[in-house]
């Protein structure tokens, strides 16, 4: 192993050790997973303890003479018939969720929503009226699939949060190391300056990627998630790249003069822009680091895109590490 490579490995381990001793970093990494899991389990426990909201029995309000005609058919499709003196105002005045009355040869169906129960009522009414078309209620899709899709969205949100963490942690590490003299003390070592940047980028990437992976694992174990590896993979790469961007903006030329907030906000705008690109133009974002995370929701895309994202991420990490080294973490010109 060459000296530079060994320096990167040792430096990465040192960064990881330092990060593990930062209470702030640990809290930041543990916070999203624990908060989401505690909120989910807490909500389920409250529902279990106090019971869900009582469901309103699906019904249709009818006048006395119409009950005789439509009552049995509505009952057959699982709708209760409610007798109402004036069905035409029953829904508007809040006496019923849906109501029906005759109008000429046909019917009027008044309802709060056009959901499944209204569709069922319409089916019966259209049959009675001998209409040329009628709705048929399609079978309910399996609940599990919808739940895993929702959980997948939660995974995407958590991954986006880790990407934003990456910016703050990268910028923070560069700023703090320069302020505390760590950069000044390490530069005289007989290794190329870029190795210091590389070890910081890799250390941050591993810490953020590990934290995200654990969070996704916890949420997947809790509620079952659609494509957990996609969120963990694209999220970890995105977090590493955003950490590198944060490191480069606060560890580049003249960064000290510009201040911490200026570097942080520039990195934040770049990363937010990439995420926006992924959401807005997913077929473009699927090929770019950070943006690929936002685009993953519209995917899955071709495996070639994943390979390109990995390569571009590696290039970005190398470029940011090189940039940091060239400007000696902000100490140089």
């Amino acid at each position: 192993m060459s000296a530079s490579l060994r320096a990167v490995v040792v430096g990465t381990l040192a960064v990881l050790l330092r990060l593990s001793r930062e209470g702030m970093v640990l809290r930041a990494l543990a916070w999203p997973g624990l908060l989401a899991a505690v909120a989910l389990v807490g909500t389920a426990s409250v529902v279990a303890a106090f019971g869900g909201r009582e469901q309103i029995e699906p019904h249709v309000a009818l006048s006395a003479e119409e009950v005789a005609i439509m009552g049995p058919s509505l009952d057959e499709v699982g709708l209760t018939v409610r007798l109402d003196p004036d069905p035409t105002t029953a829904v508007q005045e809040g006496r019923a969720e849906r109501a029906a009355w005759r109008e000429g040869e046909g019917w009027v169906l008044s309802a709060r929503d056009a959901g499944v129960h209204s569709l069922r009522a319409e089916m019966v009414l259209r049959e009675e009226a001998g209409a040329s078309w009628r709705p048929v209620v399609a079978p309910e899709p399996p609940a599990g699939k919808a739940a895993t899709a929702q959980a997948g969205r939660m995974g995407a949100l958590v991954a986006v949060l880790f990407v934003l963490y990456g910016v703050v942690m990268g910028a923070g590490l560069a700023w703090r190391d320069r302020g505390e003299g760590v950069v000044e003390a390490s530069l005289p070592l007989p290794v190329p300056a870029w190795t210091h940047g590389a070890s910081r980028v890799l250390g941050l990437g591993i810490a953020l990627g590990g934290g995200l992976w654990l969070t996704i694992l916890l949420l997947h174990g809790l509620i079952g998630m659609e494509r957990p590896s996609a969120w963990a993979g694209h999220g970890a790469l995105g977090a590493a790249v955003s950490a590198a961007v944060g490191l480069a903006t606060t560890g580049g030329a003249g960064a000290q003069k510009k201040g911490f907030s200026a570097g942080l906000s520039r990195a934040m705008v770049l990363v937010a822009g990439l995420l926006g690109l992924g959401f807005g133009l997913p077929w473009v974002g699927a090929w770019l680091p950070v943006a690929s995370l936002a685009a993953a929701g519209a995917g899955p895309w071709s495996p070639v895109a994943d390979v390109v994202v990995v390569l571009l991420s590696a290039l970005s990490l190398a470029a940011c590490a090189g940039w940091w080294g060239r400007h000696h973490g902000g100490l140089g010109r």
């Binding site: 389990v41 869900g52 895993t148 174990g221």
Partner: peptide
């Protein structure tokens, strides 16, 4: 949270949530 947490969904009435036991 990881091991016993999914049981709270069963208690809350969502018995068909597909929390994979191995995960």
């Amino acid at each position: 949270l990881a091991v016993a947490g999914p049981a709270t969904f069963v208690l809350g009435g969502a018995e068909d949530l597909p929390a994979p036991l191995d995960a």
